Amino acid sequence: MNKKLITIGAIVAFVALLVIWSVSSYNSLVTMDESVSTSWGNVENQYQRRADLIPNLVNTVKGYAAHEKSTFQAVVEARSKATQMTIDADNLTPEKIAAYQKAQGEVGAALSRLLAITEAYPELKANQNFQELQAQLEGTENRISVERKRFNDTAKEFNTKIRKFPTNIVAGMFGFEKRPYFEAEEGANKAPEVNF
């Protein structure tokens, strides 16, 4: 009788430990999954900050370079397209991130063309409002880079956790899936050509 109690006690203790470990693993995965979603929200927030700066920048440049209408239109269209694109953090896929990144890249390219125009207008470059907007835009671009890196770091931590044994068992049971990363844009490995 005593051996049966010890055996039953050992089985109950093992099951209890297994349940505690499973709950702890699940809660840890939920926390990490939420961290990935929060990081994605921070990335979107910085892109929105950039989008919010664009109208002021365009209007400031317009006052000095009214004949550059096609460039202004390209910036406005790229901004419009990028701000219409939203991705739910729970449904991130590599394809959706690539499409989002492409739309944001088009905004960046249009902004580069807009800022290149300013070289022909020294009075614009000296304008205090333009200088402040340009500084805010540069700061925002840096923030975007930082938030993208943080997103990738958070996704990597989560992806590593769901693939490691024995947590991968809990992750598989509850449907936790690998989160995609931001990747370098196509052609980013090539240095730009500079012609004088």
Rank of each mutant, 00 (worst) to 15 (best):
T154S: 15
N152M: 09
A155D: 06
N91M: 08
L137A: 14
E123M: 01
A120Y: 00
P166E: 09
L133R: 09
Q134L: 11
A99L: 08
K125E: 01
V107E: 03
T160D: 15
I97N: 04
D90V: 07
I144G: 14
I162W: 05
I117T: 10
I162V: 15
A126W: 00
A135F: 03
P122F: 04
F158S: 13
G139V: 06
D90P: 08
A116W: 00
D153H: 01
R143C: 01
T154Q: 15
A99Q: 11
A110F: 02
N168R: 05
T140F: 05
T86C: 00
L115C: 07
L115K: 07
R150G: 09
N129K: 06
K156R: 13
E138C: 11
A98C: 03
Q136Y: 08
S112N: 11
N91E: 11
S145E: 12
D153S: 13
R150L: 13
A135G: 12
F151W: 06
A116H: 09
E123G: 04
E106H: 09
K102G: 07
E157K: 00
A120P: 02
F165K: 14
V146K: 10
Q128G: 01
S112F: 02
Y121H: 09
A98E: 12
F130S: 10
Q136L: 04
Q134K: 13
L124N: 01
N127Y: 04
A89Q: 09
L137Y: 02
V107A: 03
A98P: 09
I144R: 12
F151D: 11
P122S: 07
L133D: 07
K149P: 10
G139M: 04
A116Q: 10
A98D: 10
P94W: 03
A126S: 09
E123D: 14
K156N: 06
Y100F: 12
T154N: 15
E157H: 00
Q134G: 11
E138G: 15
E157L: 00
A89H: 07
L114I: 10
Q134F: 12
P122D: 08
A126R: 02
